[in-house]
Design a binder for these strands. Structure first.
Lengths: 173, 173
DNA sequence: CCGAGCATGTAACACGTTACATGATTGC
DNA sequence: GCAATCATGTAACGTGTTACATGCTCGG
């Protein structure tokens, strides 16, 4: 949230939008998280609320202390969440389902990877164009590239695995 | 947990071990989760507890209903956790840190990817050998392969990104 | 006998989501 | 005027982790 506000001042609602739209590939926050946090950040003096005169809603902007805090937070590692990949868990016990049903599972992975690849390829082109003038865009480009690498890996794995499943199915009968 | 018990009957402690050791690359469970769940599964008649005579601890085994339930659970998709990649988040706002500090961050990603690649390569060889006789091992191999693809992608991205950061650092000065 | 590992369990806590409630604004 | 969207907030709920408490067992 501090990061979002470092780009430009905005409402809590807009922060949520910015996060889902721009960071959606690797981060997420819900309203139930955003508003209480915003209140806390205000109390800590890290953001300031411009209570709008007549229009509804308020605009939050980063204070100097907020910016310092953001930089400080970016310096230290963010603890990784424990791994949880439902697809792999299902596949691990695939012997209980058989090749047919596993094929469906991997099929969905492949399709999702393809969609993601298309999306990210488009975004990559956009951000790459921005990156010529805007230094910040070069860093954003790295995160897009990470998604691209991951999507390509996912796609390659899915295709390899579908081949293996086809072979197992052929031997079965 | 039902999956672990489908391989062979074991204690709650051993379930935890099996999960961290064997599924560690894509799944995790803590004791605080395991024991209450085990009690619930017992109440639902999905597992049976062989209260050992003199030795401490008990052995849990899957009942017929438990096996049916496992197959049923494997059939339906496991909801994906919302994405949270701390490294990418930090890099996205990399402009606030500069190329030097970002290099450290990506460096760690690269090293972690290399270690993982080595680990998984060894495991892959092992499981591939088992897969000749054991059909179940073929499914397990797929999950290892997924990890390999992901690790290679992570490594390739890290190296590409380190190059980009080197260039940005060179231009900076 | 003692330390390491096996084994079970609970309580407190943190985190995050979903759903709900409420109202303003804007474009058609 | 009405629907969609902007906007803020809270309460309930579920989930999962950490830390703690407790005791057994086995090898050296």
């Amino acid at each position: 949230m501090l990061g979002a506000l470092s780009v430009e001042p905005m409402s809590g609602y807009a922060i949520r939008q910015a996060i889902t739209e721009t960071l959606g590939h690797f981060w997420s926050e819900s309203f139930g998280q955003i508003y209480p946090t915003l209140a806390r950040l205000e109390a800590e003096g890290l953001v300031r609320r411009d209570a709008a005169g007549q229009t509804s809603g308020s605009t939050f902007r980063l204070t100097a202390a907020g910016r310092r805090r953001l930089v400080h937070l970016l310096r230290e590692p963010i603890p990784a969440a424990p791994p949880r990949n439902g697809t792999l868990l299902r596949l691990f016990f695939g012997g209980l389902l058989g090749p047919k049903e596993c094929t469906e599972v991997v099929h969905e992975v492949r399709d999702a990877a393809r969609r993601r690849l298309d999306q990210l390829t488009a975004i990559h082109a956009e951000v790459a164009a921005e990156a010529r003038d805007d230094v910040g865009a070069r860093y954003r480009l790295m995160t897009v590239s990470s998604g691209l690498h991951a999507a390509r890996a996912s796609l390659a794995w899915a295709e390899e695995t579908l081949d293996a499943l086809r072979e197992m199915d052929a031997v079965d009968r």
